[in-house]
Design a protein around this nucleic acid. Structure first.
Length: 860
RNA sequence: GCGGACGUGGCGAAACUGGUAGACGCGACGGACUUAAAAUCCGUUUCCCCUGGAGUGCGGGUUCGACCCCCGCCGUCCGCACCA
């Protein structure tokens, strides 16, 4: 009996699949009537090396793809590279390698690694987003959106990453820092290209309801990110004479936005943001206003200050009149807690029912008039102290609104304002338009030519792609494209005069916002082949990290809708099913002097002066740190090659799928992989030891083996259907234990059981499955066999063991025929000696029989 | 502050819609094989005052029966954060 040798078997089966073109996608015609299934994992950035953490993502997708394939689906399972981005450019700056060279070299290396994983990928559809053939098509649809008005250019205050020297979208700023560089983001005013994602804000929220195979968590995060709120937008008219600065007539009043029009009678002031145009206008001849505004801007720059920020304001001396009563006048104040980029950048302050307004009012001694009475309070005894009241209640102190519910009062207030022509009910979103300009080289060039005569002109399709020039220098800071001497200068596609190319490139999230559609026909001369897209989209199962909940996943949903409105795709949503998988973590190690150590530099020692973990070579003890996501900086990474070399691909695949539920992190341990490796060998030993030629006869255990096998079919299928890979793996282990125990059955039943088992484990450990299938004399390859069918009748037990409870406590067990009627079970239970012992001295009040499950006797 | 998720042995976890809590794996312990070790195989492994009792973060409740449902706490993690 030979030990299973993955070094021989695994490459052998990968070659066999390749040769048979097993994973080549079938066209709809070739697929016959088989339904399609599109499985996709978020494609990788080609950083250079894969670690075992990446593996989990692709292996999960592979399990799904192989399972669906066996079930008879026509599967699309492609792979590509999210290949534009900063690291390539940084490598060029630091190492003098051209980003293109660096990127394609990395892709080659990583493709080789990925192929080793034994993934059922159709490599014929591979592309990288930095291929001109890909980004040229991206430019083509970009110009279509431009003509449609979904792309525009404007000056805006943007997030500036001082380390990457580029602008970031709001979604790419995490806790005030760049999502990739980690640098504190600064505010800058720049002219930038934007995509009008806000046009789709409603659709993007409402569409979430249709995504019933998405995690609730992600849907909620998107909903909160888009942040829809309904309220009223209206204008306060100035009271009295307007100051000189405002004589230009631009300011007819101050437009505010509120979600609480019901509290209008509680207003004490009107506040505007420091960078509100009105504040800027006033600041022009009043230095104290300009100085205050400047102080606010500085203060708002850092996250920590916002945290504790004291409410500060500067009274302008202006007054406005209340919309419901011209006799009521409110002071206009510039306040540091009002954001210019939400709503209108101006509010009315109602201190009694908004905490910020209350803090402000207390500080500046403004009136606090409660206008909402809590349900159990009376006007006489209700006061607002230091806490604003935001709960339910009835309107009070509000003339015609008195007595109304909050909801009714909101409606009434809106109706009156609208009737008076002072404003209207409106919906406001937290979502901003997507800033897609990046001042970097290694990205998709924005296909626009700036012409002195015609302004910005989209490059026509027949002049696409606008290819990135390769002769650029990375010696100067800033955007290499801006310093490139020749590429930038061109002719205007519209008038033929001199023109200059836009030197900003597109956010790499643009590249990943439609790649799934391109995979449906990666060679199409148009961005998307409509027929192919109609057949394959939406992606049936998308798999990736939760970190993209409001980045990539939101952008892709938006772009899909924009392309739909261009008639380029027929779906609203790109991803029908989404699974967010957990990461692979590992312990971290540090040396005595604080250096991070990789797992390979650490060993366990029981002898000598230091027992426990020591640093190999130095012999010094090692400090074991927290279990963390694998990262280069902490050196807690495990290289796939090392694992494959020692245990094979299948053991590694099995381990990352076992132990923890897929959505949770799994901790990589060497003992864990060894466990998986043991399993691989035990499976092989069972199969190899049962040589079909020498097969004996079934004995009395055969029936149990048959039942066990069919129970496993059920358990494995359910595990796969519900993304409970860890449970499925556990069932495989359990089956193996039972198989060992039932060593009496050595006939056809065992052969059938082993063959079924080989097919069930195939999505998880595909190489081993093939080796087993072959050894068992199976026809063709395991990968081409249909998924074993579950037959309930064959899994059913004839007799069951039922627990018996007395007053809710488990006291005994009985044996009863499966499906036995209540009367019969009751008779068996009451005849049972053990049960009788526990019932001594008690009168049976009630016997509850749950069929095939449990019996509970209530006695007193 | 707002929103959400989670809390089960020494560890990772399982338990379908309320029905035998701890499947499966890791670790540990004991045994077999071996001159020895590794590997492999077999067994034990929730805890305790062990013919029994307790037990799914804590305190209550509903139920014949609760890890699961309800109320109130505590803790951990995640997202958003002066969003009017």
């Amino acid at each position: 009996m030979a030990r299973y040798n993955p070094k021989v078997e695994e490459p052998r089966w990968r070659a066999a699949w390749r040769e048979a073109q097993t994973f080549l996608t079938r066209t709809p015609a070739e697929a016959g009537g088989r339904p399609k299934y599109y499985v996709l994992e978020m494609f990788p950035y080609p950083s250079g090396k894969l670690h075992i953490g990446h593996a989990r993502n692709y292996v999960m997708g592979d399990v799904v793809a192989r399972y669906k394939r066996a079930q008879g689906f026509n599967v699309l399972h492609p792979m590509g590279w999210d290949a534009f981005g900063m690291p390539a450019e940084n490598a060029a700056i630091q190492g003098g390698v051209h980003p293109k060279t660096w990127t394609y070299a990395n892709i080659a290396a990583m493709r080789g690694q990925l192929e080793q994983f034994g993934l059922s990928i159709d490599w014929s559809r591979e592309f990288a987003t930095c291929d001109p053939a890909y980004y040229g098509q991206q430019q083509a649809w970009f110009t279509r959106l431009y003509r449609r008005g979904l792309v525009y250019r404007r000056q805006a205050t943007v997030n500036w990453d001082p380390v990457d020297n580029t602008v970031l979208a709001n979604e790419q700023v995490i806790d005030g820092r760049g999502w990739r560089s980690g640098a504190l983001v600064e505010k800058k005013k720049l002219t930038q290209w934007f995509l009008r994602i806000t046009t789709y804000a409603d659709e993007l929220i409402d569409g979430l309801k249709t995504l019933d195979r998405w995690p609730d968590k992600v849907r909620l995060m998107q909903e909160n990110w888009i942040g829809r709120s309904r309220g009223l937008r209206f204008t306060f008219a100035f009271a009295g004479e307007r100051p000189k600065a405002l004589e230009s007539g631009v300011f007819d009043g101050i437009e505010v936005y509120t979600t609480r029009p019901d509290t209008l009678f509680g207003a004490s002031f009107v506040g505007i943001a420091a960078d509100h145009p009105l504040a800027e206008a006033l600041g022009r001849d009043r230095p104290e206003i300009a100085a205050f505004a400047e102080a606010c801007r500085r203060g708002a720059a850092t996250e920590a200050e916002i945290e504790t920020a004291e409410k500060k304001g500067l009274f302008t001396g202006l007054e406005v009149v209340h919309p419901f009563d011209p006799a009521i006048r409110l002071p206009v104040v510039i306040a540091n807690f009002i954001l210019m980029d939400y709503g209108t950048g101006a509010i009315f302050g109602c201190p009694a029912h908004d905490q910020r307004d209350l803090d402000f009012a207390r500080k500046y001694d403004l009136p606090v008039l409660p206008v909402v009475l809590p349900p159990d309070a009376t006007a006489a005894d209700f006061h607002v102290g230091t806490e604003a009241y935001t709960g339910p209640g009835r309107i009070n102190n509000s003339r015609f609104l008195d007595g109304l519910s909050i909801e009714a009062a909101k409606a009434e207030a809106i109706a009156r304002i609208e009737a008076a022509g002072q404003g209207q009910g409106s919906t406001v979103y937290r979502l901003r338009d997507w800033g897609v300009s990046r001042q970097r080289y290694w990205g998709c060039p924005i296909p626009i030519v700036h012409c002195a005569q015609c302004g910005p002109v989209a490059v026509p399709d027949d002049q696409l792609p606008v290819v990135l020039p390769e002769d650029v220098s990375f010696d100067l800071p800033g955007n290499p494209l801006a310093h490139q001497p020749t590429w930038k200068l061109t002719t205007c596609p519209s008038c033929g005069g001199p023109g200059e190319r836009e030197t900003d490139t597109l956010d790499t999230f643009m590249d990943s916002s439609w790649y799934f559609a391109r995979f449906t026909d990666p060679t199409s001369p148009t961005p998307i082949d409509r027929a192919a897209a109609d057949y394959w989209l939406a992606v049936d199962q998308y798999i990736g990290g939760v970190e993209h909940a409001v980045l990539h996943l939101l952008y892709a949903r938006f772009v899909t809708r924009a392309l739909r409105d261009e008639g380029m795709v027929g779906v609203d949503e790109p991803f029908a099913g989404l699974f967010t998988q957990g990461m692979v973590t590992h312990e971290t190690y540090r040396s005595e002097d604080g250096r991070w150590l990789s797992p390979g530099e650490v060993d366990y020692r029981t002898e000598g002066r230091h027992s426990g973990l020591v640093e190999i070579g130095a012999g010094q003890p090692v400090h074991v740190g927290g279990v963390e996501k694998m990262s280069k900086s902490k050196k807690n990474v495990v290289a796939p090659e090392d694992i494959f070399d020692q245990y094979g691909v299948d053991a590694a695949r099995l381990f990352v799928l076992s132990d923890s539920p897929p959505e949770r992190d799994v901790q990589w341990t060497s003992s864990g992989v060894e466990g998986a490796w043991r399993f691989v060998n035990r499976v092989w030993a069972e199969v190899d030891g049962f040589a079909p030629a020498a097969a004996g006869r079934d004995d009395g255990q055969a029936e149990e083996l048959l039942r066990t096998t069919h129970k496993l079919v059920k358990a494995a299928t359910e595990g796969l259907e519900h993304f409970r890979f860890n449970s499925a793996v556990a069932q495989f282990y359990a089956f193996l234990n039972i198989l060992k125990r039932l060593d009496g059955a050595q006939g056809p039943t065992r052969l059938q059981a082993l063959k079924t088992f080989a097919l069930l484990i195939a999505p998880f450990v595909p190489h081993l499955a093939e080796a087993c299938w072959e050894r068992l004399g199976g026809e063709g390859m395991a990968v081409d066999q249909p998924w074993p069918a579950f037959e309930p009748a064959l899994a059913a037990d004839d007799e069951l063991t039922l627990p018996v409870q007395v007053n809710g406590k488990r006291r005994a067990e009985i044996r009863a025929p499966a499906g036995a009627a209540e009367d019969e079970v009751r008779r068996i239970v009451l005849d049972d000696a053990d049960v009788a012992r526990h019932l001594e001295g008690l009168a049976v009040r009630k016997v509850i029989v749950v069929r095939d499950r449990i019996v509970n006797i209530v006695a007193a």
